[in-house]
Design a protein around this nucleic acid. Sequence first.
DNA 1: TCTATTTGACCAGG
DNA 2: CCTGGTCAAATAGA
Length: 243
Amino acid sequence: MATQPESSVSIEESPRSQDFNQPFDNQQEDKVVSKKRKAMPTWQNQIRISTENGLEGNTDDGYSWRKYGQKDILGSKFPRSYYRCTYRYIHHCMARKQVQRTNEDPTVFEITYKGQHSCNPTASPSAAPPHSPEKHDPIEQTNHQLALPPKSGVSTSDFDATVPYSFSFPSTSFGSIENYQQPHLLQGYSPSFISPTTSGSNNLTECSSYFQHHDDSNSSLTFITDPQDLSQNFPFNNSGYFM
DNA sequence: TCTATTTGACCAGG
DNA sequence: CCTGGTCAAATAGA
Protein backbone atom coordinates (compact mmCIF):
# COMPACT_ATOMS: atom_id res chain seq x y z
CA MET A 1 0.00 0.00 0.00
CA ALA A 2 2.95 2.18 0.31
CA THR A 3 2.86 2.56 -3.39
CA GLN A 4 -0.21 4.63 -3.17
CA PRO A 5 0.45 8.31 -3.30
CA GLU A 6 -2.00 8.69 -0.53
CA SER A 7 0.52 7.51 1.94
CA SER A 8 2.53 10.54 1.16
CA VAL A 9 -0.48 12.61 1.56
CA SER A 10 -1.20 11.56 5.05
CA ILE A 11 2.35 12.28 5.92
CA GLU A 12 2.79 15.54 4.21
CA GLU A 13 -0.68 16.85 4.25
CA SER A 14 -2.32 16.97 7.57
CA PRO A 15 -5.97 16.18 7.69
CA ARG A 16 -7.64 19.47 7.38
CA SER A 17 -10.52 19.78 9.70
CA GLN A 18 -13.41 20.51 7.55
CA ASP A 19 -16.46 18.59 8.46
CA PHE A 20 -16.65 18.13 12.14
CA ASN A 21 -13.17 18.68 13.33
CA GLN A 22 -12.27 21.53 15.48
CA PRO A 23 -9.23 23.35 14.23
CA PHE A 24 -8.27 23.93 17.81
CA ASP A 25 -7.66 20.33 18.55
CA ASN A 26 -4.58 20.32 16.50
CA GLN A 27 -1.38 20.28 18.39
CA GLN A 28 0.65 21.74 15.65
CA GLU A 29 -1.68 24.11 14.00
CA ASP A 30 1.28 26.35 13.79
CA LYS A 31 1.39 26.08 10.10
CA VAL A 32 -1.96 24.59 9.61
CA VAL A 33 -3.91 26.79 7.33
CA SER A 34 -1.12 29.12 6.64
CA LYS A 35 -2.38 32.61 6.89
CA LYS A 36 -0.45 33.79 3.96
CA ARG A 37 -1.38 31.96 0.88
CA LYS A 38 0.00 34.48 -1.48
CA ALA A 39 3.61 35.29 -2.05
CA MET A 40 3.67 33.21 -5.13
CA PRO A 41 4.39 34.13 -8.69
CA THR A 42 1.32 34.78 -10.68
CA TRP A 43 1.01 35.53 -14.31
CA GLN A 44 -1.85 35.47 -16.69
CA ASN A 45 -2.14 34.36 -20.21
CA GLN A 46 -4.87 34.74 -22.68
CA ILE A 47 -5.37 31.92 -25.06
CA ARG A 48 -7.66 32.45 -27.91
CA ILE A 49 -9.35 29.42 -29.23
CA SER A 50 -10.14 29.72 -32.83
CA THR A 51 -13.60 28.56 -33.52
CA GLU A 52 -12.23 26.64 -36.39
CA ASN A 53 -9.43 24.90 -34.68
CA GLY A 54 -9.44 23.74 -31.17
CA LEU A 55 -5.71 23.44 -31.23
CA GLU A 56 -5.35 26.60 -29.36
CA GLY A 57 -7.81 25.30 -26.92
CA ASN A 58 -5.19 22.97 -25.76
CA THR A 59 -4.42 24.70 -22.54
CA ASP A 60 -2.01 21.95 -21.80
CA ASP A 61 1.25 23.71 -21.33
CA GLY A 62 3.20 20.54 -21.04
CA TYR A 63 2.40 19.88 -17.44
CA SER A 64 -0.05 17.54 -15.92
CA TRP A 65 -2.88 19.37 -14.32
CA ARG A 66 -5.58 17.97 -12.19
CA LYS A 67 -8.81 19.75 -11.77
CA TYR A 68 -9.64 20.23 -8.16
CA GLY A 69 -12.51 22.59 -8.28
CA GLN A 70 -14.81 24.75 -10.25
CA LYS A 71 -16.59 27.81 -9.11
CA ASP A 72 -18.83 30.34 -10.64
CA ILE A 73 -17.41 33.77 -10.55
CA LEU A 74 -19.62 36.68 -10.00
CA GLY A 75 -19.88 38.65 -13.16
CA SER A 76 -18.57 35.82 -15.21
CA LYS A 77 -20.82 33.84 -17.38
CA PHE A 78 -18.61 30.81 -17.25
CA PRO A 79 -17.30 29.05 -14.20
CA ARG A 80 -13.69 29.18 -13.33
CA SER A 81 -11.78 25.94 -13.24
CA TYR A 82 -9.04 25.33 -10.76
CA TYR A 83 -6.17 23.07 -11.62
CA ARG A 84 -3.19 21.97 -9.67
CA CYS A 85 -0.13 20.02 -10.61
CA THR A 86 -0.68 16.30 -10.65
CA TYR A 87 2.57 15.87 -8.80
CA ARG A 88 1.70 18.17 -6.02
CA TYR A 89 2.43 15.63 -3.36
CA ILE A 90 5.07 13.85 -5.31
CA HIS A 91 7.31 16.76 -5.99
CA HIS A 92 5.77 19.35 -3.84
CA CYS A 93 4.80 21.10 -6.94
CA MET A 94 2.50 23.77 -5.72
CA ALA A 95 1.89 25.12 -9.14
CA ARG A 96 -1.70 25.93 -9.82
CA LYS A 97 -3.63 27.08 -12.75
CA GLN A 98 -6.92 28.83 -13.11
CA VAL A 99 -8.81 28.75 -16.32
CA GLN A 100 -11.65 31.07 -16.93
CA ARG A 101 -13.44 31.67 -20.14
CA THR A 102 -14.02 35.30 -20.82
CA ASN A 103 -17.55 36.40 -20.63
CA GLU A 104 -17.45 38.43 -23.76
CA ASP A 105 -15.27 36.24 -25.85
CA PRO A 106 -15.91 32.60 -25.17
CA THR A 107 -13.12 31.86 -27.53
CA VAL A 108 -10.63 33.44 -25.23
CA PHE A 109 -9.47 31.61 -22.20
CA GLU A 110 -7.83 33.45 -19.43
CA ILE A 111 -5.35 31.20 -17.77
CA THR A 112 -3.81 32.32 -14.57
CA TYR A 113 -0.75 30.47 -13.45
CA LYS A 114 0.21 30.50 -9.84
CA GLY A 115 3.38 29.13 -8.47
CA GLN A 116 6.29 27.55 -10.11
CA HIS A 117 6.61 24.00 -11.27
CA SER A 118 9.07 21.99 -9.30
CA CYS A 119 8.43 19.02 -11.47
CA ASN A 120 9.46 18.36 -14.97
CA PRO A 121 6.90 18.79 -17.69
CA THR A 122 5.20 15.76 -19.06
CA ALA A 123 7.11 16.30 -22.20
CA SER A 124 8.06 12.70 -21.83
CA PRO A 125 8.02 11.13 -25.23
CA SER A 126 6.21 8.19 -23.78
CA ALA A 127 3.37 10.36 -22.72
CA ALA A 128 2.84 12.74 -25.55
CA PRO A 129 4.80 12.34 -28.70
CA PRO A 130 5.47 15.54 -30.50
CA HIS A 131 3.75 14.14 -33.49
CA SER A 132 0.54 13.61 -31.74
CA PRO A 133 -1.86 14.09 -34.60
CA GLU A 134 -4.65 15.11 -32.40
CA LYS A 135 -5.30 14.44 -28.83
CA HIS A 136 -8.73 14.76 -27.42
CA ASP A 137 -7.86 17.54 -25.20
CA PRO A 138 -10.82 18.18 -23.02
CA ILE A 139 -10.28 21.80 -23.62
CA GLU A 140 -11.96 23.41 -20.72
CA GLN A 141 -14.44 20.66 -20.26
CA THR A 142 -17.27 23.06 -19.88
CA ASN A 143 -17.49 23.34 -23.58
CA HIS A 144 -21.07 22.37 -23.62
CA GLN A 145 -21.75 26.00 -23.96
CA LEU A 146 -19.86 26.47 -27.10
CA ALA A 147 -18.83 23.32 -28.78
CA LEU A 148 -15.73 24.02 -30.75
CA PRO A 149 -15.74 22.03 -33.91
CA PRO A 150 -12.58 20.01 -33.91
CA LYS A 151 -10.74 20.69 -37.03
CA SER A 152 -7.24 20.25 -38.14
CA GLY A 153 -6.16 23.45 -39.65
CA VAL A 154 -3.62 26.08 -39.21
CA SER A 155 -3.41 27.47 -35.81
CA THR A 156 -3.82 31.14 -35.86
CA SER A 157 -2.36 31.77 -32.53
CA ASP A 158 -2.74 35.36 -31.88
CA PHE A 159 -1.12 34.92 -28.61
CA ASP A 160 1.08 37.84 -27.89
CA ALA A 161 4.62 36.88 -27.33
CA THR A 162 5.24 40.17 -25.70
CA VAL A 163 5.51 38.48 -22.41
CA PRO A 164 9.03 38.68 -21.12
CA TYR A 165 8.79 35.14 -19.94
CA SER A 166 9.03 33.36 -23.19
CA PHE A 167 5.64 32.00 -22.61
CA SER A 168 4.98 31.15 -26.16
CA PHE A 169 2.92 28.09 -26.61
CA PRO A 170 3.87 25.74 -29.34
CA SER A 171 1.23 26.97 -31.63
CA THR A 172 2.67 26.24 -34.99
CA SER A 173 5.56 24.14 -33.96
CA PHE A 174 4.49 21.19 -31.94
CA GLY A 175 7.09 19.13 -30.27
CA SER A 176 9.30 21.85 -29.01
CA ILE A 177 7.95 21.83 -25.58
CA GLU A 178 11.32 21.43 -24.11
CA ASN A 179 12.13 25.02 -24.67
CA TYR A 180 9.33 25.75 -22.35
CA GLN A 181 10.76 28.23 -19.99
CA GLN A 182 9.26 29.67 -16.96
CA PRO A 183 9.98 33.09 -15.68
CA HIS A 184 13.59 33.07 -14.85
CA LEU A 185 12.81 35.61 -12.27
CA LEU A 186 12.77 32.82 -9.80
CA GLN A 187 16.40 32.29 -10.32
CA GLY A 188 17.08 35.70 -9.04
CA TYR A 189 15.29 34.91 -5.89
CA SER A 190 16.28 32.55 -3.17
CA PRO A 191 16.60 29.21 -4.84
CA SER A 192 18.77 28.01 -2.04
CA PHE A 193 15.63 27.06 -0.32
CA ILE A 194 15.29 23.45 -1.12
CA SER A 195 13.70 20.64 0.73
CA PRO A 196 15.90 17.63 0.12
CA THR A 197 14.42 15.92 3.09
CA THR A 198 11.21 14.83 1.57
CA SER A 199 11.82 15.05 -2.10
CA GLY A 200 15.13 13.46 -1.57
CA SER A 201 14.19 11.11 -4.30
CA ASN A 202 16.59 11.82 -7.04
CA ASN A 203 17.11 15.31 -8.04
CA LEU A 204 15.36 14.61 -11.27
CA THR A 205 14.18 18.11 -11.05
CA GLU A 206 15.56 20.74 -8.91
CA CYS A 207 12.93 22.15 -6.75
CA SER A 208 13.10 25.81 -7.21
CA SER A 209 10.74 26.00 -4.37
CA TYR A 210 10.23 29.59 -3.81
CA PHE A 211 7.76 28.75 -1.14
CA GLN A 212 6.46 31.52 0.90
CA HIS A 213 8.78 34.12 2.12
CA HIS A 214 8.24 36.07 5.20
CA ASP A 215 7.02 38.85 3.15
CA ASP A 216 3.44 39.24 2.24
CA SER A 217 3.15 42.89 1.66
CA ASN A 218 3.64 43.44 -1.97
CA SER A 219 7.19 42.74 -2.77
CA SER A 220 6.18 39.23 -3.40
CA LEU A 221 6.84 37.57 -6.65
CA THR A 222 3.54 38.60 -7.98
CA PHE A 223 4.13 39.60 -11.49
CA ILE A 224 1.62 39.77 -14.19
CA THR A 225 1.95 40.33 -17.83
CA ASP A 226 1.97 43.91 -18.82
CA PRO A 227 -1.48 45.28 -18.37
CA GLN A 228 -1.08 46.95 -21.66
CA ASP A 229 -0.57 43.63 -23.21
CA LEU A 230 -3.87 42.54 -21.88
CA SER A 231 -5.46 45.63 -23.17
CA GLN A 232 -4.61 44.48 -26.60
CA ASN A 233 -6.56 41.38 -26.08
CA PHE A 234 -9.12 43.00 -23.90
CA PRO A 235 -10.40 46.16 -25.37
CA PHE A 236 -13.22 46.09 -22.92
CA ASN A 237 -11.43 47.55 -20.07
CA ASN A 238 -7.91 48.65 -19.67
CA SER A 239 -8.13 48.13 -15.99
CA GLY A 240 -6.89 44.68 -16.54
CA TYR A 241 -10.13 42.93 -16.07
CA PHE A 242 -13.20 42.57 -18.10
CA MET A 243 -16.48 43.98 -17.04
C1' DT B 1 -9.05 -1.35 -10.33
C1' DC B 2 -7.12 2.90 -10.62
C1' DT B 3 -7.02 7.61 -11.91
C1' DA B 4 -9.13 11.79 -13.07
C1' DT B 5 -13.15 14.39 -12.86
C1' DT B 6 -17.38 16.10 -10.74
C1' DT B 7 -20.03 18.34 -7.25
C1' DG B 8 -21.01 20.27 -2.71
C1' DA B 9 -19.59 22.22 1.44
C1' DC B 10 -16.41 24.82 4.27
C1' DC B 11 -13.19 28.38 5.19
C1' DA B 12 -10.77 32.62 4.91
C1' DG B 13 -10.22 37.26 3.23
C1' DG B 14 -11.96 41.74 1.99
C1' DC C 1 -21.88 39.43 4.48
C1' DC C 2 -20.31 38.09 0.11
C1' DT C 3 -17.00 36.13 -3.00
C1' DG C 4 -13.32 33.36 -4.12
C1' DG C 5 -10.51 29.33 -3.21
C1' DT C 6 -9.70 24.63 -1.65
C1' DC C 7 -10.69 20.08 -0.03
C1' DA C 8 -13.03 15.88 0.27
C1' DA C 9 -16.26 12.33 -1.10
C1' DA C 10 -18.62 10.36 -4.95
C1' DT C 11 -18.86 9.20 -9.76
C1' DA C 12 -17.32 8.18 -14.44
C1' DG C 13 -14.12 6.63 -17.68
C1' DA C 14 -10.13 3.92 -19.32
